[in-house]
Design a protein around this nucleic acid. Structure first.
Length: 235
DNA sequence: GCGACAG
DNA sequence: ATCTTGTCGC
């Protein structure tokens, strides 16, 4: 928990500033496989954000889980004022200030952060997962619920089936459409920072044993909604 | 120019 | 994201 957070000093406030900041950070993303490091990952965090546009309030949650048992190890929330509009391609500027505050409230450092959205699968290769990775130095992946502007073929019906997610502009594989539950629409996985795509897909499957979305995002989603309600009725 | 567009 | 009832299915 914490009081109302403000964006970090110098946080972009306009579209032009945000675009310039993305250009500055895009080259700092590490998209390589983490090799043996994958076996050592034990603390996974999920982050998510909820808004009340009427009251101009935003609440973020960071939930730390044990990678293997998926039990909650720790929770943290942060509340603030909405400091940036929703503009497709610039989502990070709206969500990250509060997410960073929630993450800072954790007593332990996550080995992986699962974001609700995209990483490298982004018009300028810096979706919120990659952006968060560069700013925090943490290993991150993005698991989104919709295909955004990308194209893909329907993966097979069985859990674990996947197909490449393509950028229509250049045909690049920017992520994968992954079936986490038999017969249920896929999620869209992309690399955030300090990890490879195959590993990101592997971990997503591991973190989503029972539902379409990873437990990390399910828990973070419910927590940030509760934090928003609490914050709104408290002021 | 118009529509689409992570959350 | 958020606004929202019932309803089909395991």
């Amino acid at each position: 928990m914490s009081n109302s957070v403000d964006p970090p000093a110098g946080w972009p406030a306009t579209e032009a500033e945000a675009l310039a900041e993305q250009q500055r950070l895009r080259g700092l993303v590490d998209a390589g496989p983490c090799g043996p490091a994958l076996a050592g990952l034990s603390l996974v965090a999920g982050v998510d954000v909820a808004y009340d546009d009427e009251r101009d309030v935003v609440a973020a949650a960071a939930v730390l889980l044990d990678r293997h048992s998926l039990e909650v190890v720790e929770e943290s929330t942060a509340v603030g004022r909405i400091s940036f509009p929703y503009l497709p391609g610039l989502l990070a500027f709206r969500e990250l200030p509060t997410v960073l505050a929630a993450l800072a409230g954790l007593g332990r450092t996550p080995d992986l952060v699962v974001c609700d959205g995209y990483g490298l699968a982004h018009p300028r290769r810096l979706g919120l997962a990659s952006h968060l990775g560069v700013l925090s130095g943490l290993r991150t992946i993005g698991v989104a619920k919709t295909p955004f502007t990308f194209t893909y073929e329907q993966p097979g019906p069985e859990r674990g089936a996947w197909t490449p997610l393509h950028d229509a502009e250049n045909g690049e594989e920017v992520g994968r459409a992954l079936r986490t539950r038999r017969g249920v629409k896929p999620v869209f996985v992309s690399v955030g920072h300090r990890i490879g795509l195959a590993e990101a897909v592997h971990l997503t499957l591991e973190l989503a044993p029972a539902y379409r979305l990873p437990e990390t995002t399910r828990k973070a989603d419910s927590l940030c909604r509760r934090a928003l309600s609490a914050a709104v009725e408290r002021c």
